[in-house]
């Protein structure tokens, strides 16, 4: 990470966030290039999700700045709604709009936020549902979908806005292993197609095979950053990541 600043699509500078007495983020900085898939791992409660939410300002950080291209996302006032169109987000619990069918979930922001015509929005929504293999479920309501299907629809909803980067906040943590796989496959495909992604996950297989960089967070700071080859390879260092992954492996019986 030594290139010129303008090489980066997203820059995060020294983010701090405190809830009451708990300092959740203690100065986190990193940069993202176009097409990167950055995977954040680490113990629960170390601020990974908060960090993602600070990027699109769903959580307003106490200090620090976020830049998308060369525009500041933090302190952007009403303009934040424009940035959020460019920064997609996928949530652990999907958060599909419960009163809308799958296709309407994808359409609604196209119509209400982007101002597309209903016909154009429908066409775009169908295209995105096809991308995640959910076109056959276009007219199903969220309650009629499995968790994996719901999460794929929510990915389509994010994709439809044509964002520069998508934030995935533990996208498979609410899913059983089989459904996890179908969601990870969609994400893997997106990464291969060049989508820029920040992913908070405990899926080490995904981190290993898809990440351009693995970021290990603990106690509100980035402890280690490395490529999968560095982290999983024979070289020295990365003791903390390895010990963390060892613990996860023990639990899941790998």
């Amino acid at each position: 990470m030594s290139e010129n600043k303008t090489d980066y699509i997203l820059r995060v500078e020294d983010i701090h966030k405190t809830y009451g007495d708990a300092e959740v983020l203690k100065g986190v900085s990193f940069n993202v290039r176009k097409g990167d898939t950055i995977v954040f791992i680490g113990p629960s409660g170390t601020g990974k999700s908060t960090l993602l939410r600070c990027i699109n300002q769903l959580t307003v950080p106490d200090s620090g700045r976020v830049w998308l291209h060369d525009e500041e996302v933090t302190n952007s006032g009403k303009k934040i709604n424009r940035f959020r169109q460019k920064i997609g987000m996928v949530f652990q619990n999907f958060y599909l709009f419960d009163h809308l069918t799958a296709i309407k979930n994808v359409e609604i922001a196209l119509i209400k936020v982007k101002g597309m015509s209903p016909e154009a929005a429908r066409e775009k929504a169908l295209y995105e549902l096809r991308q995640v293999g959910m076109e056959d479920f276009a007219d199903h309501y969220p309650a009629e979908l499995s968790g994996g299907q719901a999460q794929r629809v929510s990915i389509a909803r994010a994709l439809a806005m044509e964002p520069d980067v998508i934030l995935f906040d533990e996208p498979t943590s609410a899913l059983d292993p089989e459904l996890t796989r179908e969601v990870l496959e969609v994400m893997r495909k997106l990464a291969l197609e060049g989508m820029t992604m920040l992913v908070v996950t405990h899926e080490m297989g995904f981190a290993r095979s898809v990440a351009t960089e693995i970021v290990f967070m603990e106690s509100g700071v980035i402890q280690e950053i490395g490529t999968p080859a560095e982290v999983f390879g024979d070289g020295g260092g990365f003791e903390r990541i390895r010990s963390f992954m060892g613990k996860i492996g023990d639990l899941s019986g790998d």
């Binding site: 699109n56 769903l58 009403k78 709604n81 424009r82 940035f83 959020r84 169109q85 920064i87 997609g88 987000m89 949530f91 619990n93 958060y95 599909l96 709009f97 419960d98 922001a109 209400k112 936020v113 929510s154 909803r157 994010a158 806005m161």
Partner: peptide, 17 residues
């Protein structure tokens, strides 16, 4: 659920919308 508002805002909707 709070998530409904969160998801809407994450797509760039204003609070009023």
């Amino acid at each position: 659920s709070e998530g409904q508002m969160t998801a809407a805002r994450s797509l760039g909707m204003s609070r009023a919308a």
